[in-house]
Design a protein around this nucleic acid. Structure first.
Length: 596
RNA sequence: GGCCCCGUAGUUCAAUGGAUAGAAUAGCGGUUUCCUAAACCGUAGAUCCAAGUUCGAUUCUUGGCGGGGCUACCA
């Protein structure tokens, strides 16, 4: 059941009857009627003037009159300029409400019904430092998009490709060897990823110091950066690692384990999980054989020093390195290899990479290379390119310590939720366990909503000084609306009023109809969010619906309504609004409490 | 320099080419003998500039101006 489609058909039919031409469907533009006009849906008639060959107002009137005469569901219309506003019967809206109420998993496509398998790669952290706000955006987006795709009937595989090797990890390892005195997460009480991150910062400090010293001795900055003893040592360590030197290898394993334990805590706090975790140390070899394939096909070219390149100048890009002159692989080599492996192994229909927009170039190249190699699925590689999270002063930089740490932020959000709840006296009747669960839900809800309500492709600003709001267009606002409805439903059952499964047709009020109409739009929103890979649409939906419900709540009584028919309808509407809130927030990875 | 993205109230965000550009927050003024005031109501406030396409442009095109990113034998 899709109301817009039904209307589209009826309108097209009416137009054919009046003007003798069946209009192209994209000329029949239906939208929700704006608040200030009377009606439920609006037909924009301008595009139809070619067919009617009449003035906008006349066309609108003709179509409106025909619709009212022939349609079962359209009861009246009005015309404002070129806009035909249609009002649907309250019986129809009651029917919509009943259908929603009796649909299991309302809004969801049947699980697996699309027959498509989509892989979503996200998170992809480095193991040399803890997660920060940028990672939070990545994780929340990846997780939410995965859920949305599942709700659209796709099979989704969530994967994390951990960058567990490379010079940056060696930097942390080296600093730990030199300055660590055997410190461990247990001995220091620090979370493993933070411990390792601290040594990464230490390395950088020492590195900078050595550069400065060399410059004092008259060396240029460029040269000093290359010749500082500590960086040379780090590079030596990487060579040893690649040669599987046992001491280095086991240190690497130990420190990575610390980091993973730390990441697990953060992921679990965010409510995020993966179906599969890949490690670069295991995948970085992949793709090398493809290079030979590309050379044979003449897609790639070898330079005299032995390095392999692909020339993309004809495609508006540059030359890109695929294999170093010493035969070792680079980032691109690996992504080529893993893509092929994954498409083969899982028979993917789509592969979505949730990666910041700073890597747009990389993914353009990847797609082009795959296409040149003749993989027809190259069109099905998507880069969900999201904007950076910026601070008021600009970009976050780990090495300079200007990052907003993920764990700290999560902790802060929860403790703010705690303070506010106490201040408002919300937790008085609850057990400590219940209270802490609710406080956590609210704190995380505020954080997740704050991030996800913004269009992914836009960069966003986070001001640490102005803490994330709990009032207004926020997660807690939506959560509160849900809790409020649950409270009513609880009270109803306490006094023995059952929530009806369906209602008898009656004359719905404007606010009631509006709520039904909003809820009925949810399946379409889920579909659109899936197509656009945009959780923000669901956040907006949840907010609009909550706003509308709160107005309704203030204006009308529900339990105290004396007309039983009306009371039943309002209860059912409330129930379905709560349900729609729970579903839309759930797709954002946000829980909604039953009381707060 | 080249390429890509972005510019909307003081601030943070909305608006498949459609009506009088929506919210939130901050500001000002209100609402609690009544189902949760983390709520509700009122008030004031914005499309960077200039051309073009269109019945109609925040949206599309071009040119400016401003911000960010990429342009590594790093990942």
């Amino acid at each position: 059941m899709n109301i817009e489609n039904t209307l589209q058909l009826e309108i097209s039919k009416a137009i054919e009857e009046i003007y003798g031409v069946l209009p192209n469907p994209n000329l029949v533009q239906i939208q929700k009627t704006k608040r200030e006009f009377e009606g439920n849906f609006t037909l924009v008639v301008f595009p139809l003037l070619k067919v009617s060959k009449k003035k906008p107002e006349d066309t609108a009137h003709e179509i409106g009159e025909r619709l009212v005469a022939t349609s079962q569901i359209i009861t009246s219309f009005n015309v404002v300029k070129g806009f035909l506003n249609l009002t649907l019967s309250t019986d129809f809206w009651c029917g919509v409400l009943n259908t929603i109420s009796n649909t299991t998993d309302f809004g969801y496509a049947k699980s697996g019904s699309s027959g498509k398998t989509k892989m979503v790669e996200f998170s992809s952290p480095n193991t040399n430092k803890p997660l920060h706000l940028g990672h939070i955006r990545n994780n929340l987006l990846g997780f939410s998009v995965s859920r949305i795709l599942e709700a659209n009937g796709h099979r989704v595989i969530k994967v994390n490709l951990v960058n567990d090797r490379g010079i940056h990890i060696c930097k942390s390892m080296l600093a730990w060897q030199r300055f660590g005195n055997g410190e461990t997460p247990v001995s220091s009480g620090k979370k493993g990823d933070h411990l390792v991150g601290d040594y990464y910062v230490l390395f950088d400090k020492e590195y900078k110091k050595q550069i400065a010293e060399l410059q004092d001795k008259g060396m240029s900055e460029e040269e000093a950066k290359v010749k500082a003893p500590i960086i040379i040592e780090a590079q030596e360590m990487l060579r040893k690692w690649e040669a599987k030197d046992s001491e280095i290898y086991s240190l690497w394993q130990t420190m990575n384990q610390w980091v993973y334990a730390g990441f697990d805590v953060t992921y679990s706090a965010l409510g995020i999980e993966f179906d599969k975790v890949y490690y670069e140390s295991e995948t970085y070899i992949l793709g090398k054989s493809i290079v030979n394939e590309g050379l044979a096909k003449g897609v790639f070219a070898k330079k005299t020093d032995g390095s392999v390149w692909v020339d993309l100048k004809d495609d508006g890009l540059d030359e890109k390195l695929l294999l170093r002159s010493d035969g070792t692989s680079v980032y691109m080599t690996q992504d080529i290899g893993t893509a092929i492996q994954r498409f083969n192994e899982y028979r993917l229909d789509d592969h979505i990479y949730v990666v910041g927009n700073e890597q747009e170039y990389h993914f353009n190249v990847l797609k082009l290379v795959m296409s040149k190699l003749g993989y027809e699925w190259s069109e099905h590689l998507y880069h969900l390119s999201y904007g950076m999270v910026q601070l008021p002063e600009g970009k976050m930089k780990s090495r300079e310590g200007t990052v907003v740490d993920a764990d700290e932020l999560i902790h802060e959000m929860i403790s703010t939720a705690q303070e506010m709840s106490e201040e408002l006296g919300k937790l008085n009747e609850l057990s400590a366990e219940e209270a802490s669960k609710i406080v956590e839900t609210i704190g995380l809800g505020a954080l997740k909503y704050f991030i996800l309500k913004v269009d992914p492709k836009k960069s966003m600003t986070f001001n640490p000084k102005e803490s994330i709001d709990f009032n207004g267009n926020t997660g807690p606002f939506v959560q509160y609306t849900h809790a409020r409805i649950q409270s009513i439903l609880r009270k109803a059952s306490e006094v023995g009023i059952a929530i009806p499964q369906s209602i008898e047709p009656f004359n719905l009020g404007d606010k009631e109809r509006e709520l039904v109409q909003l809820v009925s739009a949810l399946p379409g929103i889920i579909k659109q969010a899936g197509e656009m890979l945009s959780p923000a649409l669901l956040a907006n939906f949840a907010h609009d619906l909550s706003k509308e419900y709160n107005q309704f709540y203030h204006e009308f009584s529900i339990l105290k309504e004396e007309d039983e028919k009306v009371r039943q309808a309002r209860l059912l509407i409330s129930h379905e609004v709560a349900n729609a809130i729970r579903i839309s927030m759930g797709l954002l990875g946000i829980d909604v409490p039953n009381r707060m």
